[in-house]
Amino acid sequence: MRGDSDQSLTLVYLARLRDAFGASGERVVLPPDIATAGALRAWLAARGGPWATELAPGRTVRIAVNHDIAQPDTPVRPGDEVALLPPVTGG
């Protein structure tokens, strides 16, 4: 159980994005004004380097919040698992 004081959420990076970012994920505490999937993406892109490249507005990256595909206005909250997915290539 997480305490009420833990304001972090879990980020998961998959496939090509994991390679580009050099990590399979991390825990972050979001600034108060970052409250949606779209805002989170822009916040990460502002890190620059591979983040800016991979998450540039034209790049197709889907975001899943707690295992459901999210839209830019989908809320993200502490305790959520938020995954960044490159275009899928299964089947």
Partner: peptide, 22 residues
């Protein structure tokens, strides 16, 4: 499944390893 299920393919070719493009 091809467009919505979260699977990714990585290929090993003589030129190296690469993620498959959608």
């Amino acid at each position: 499944l091809k467009t919505r299920a979260p699977f990714w393919k990585k290929e090993s070719t003589p030129e190296g390893i690469r993620w498959v493009d959608a």
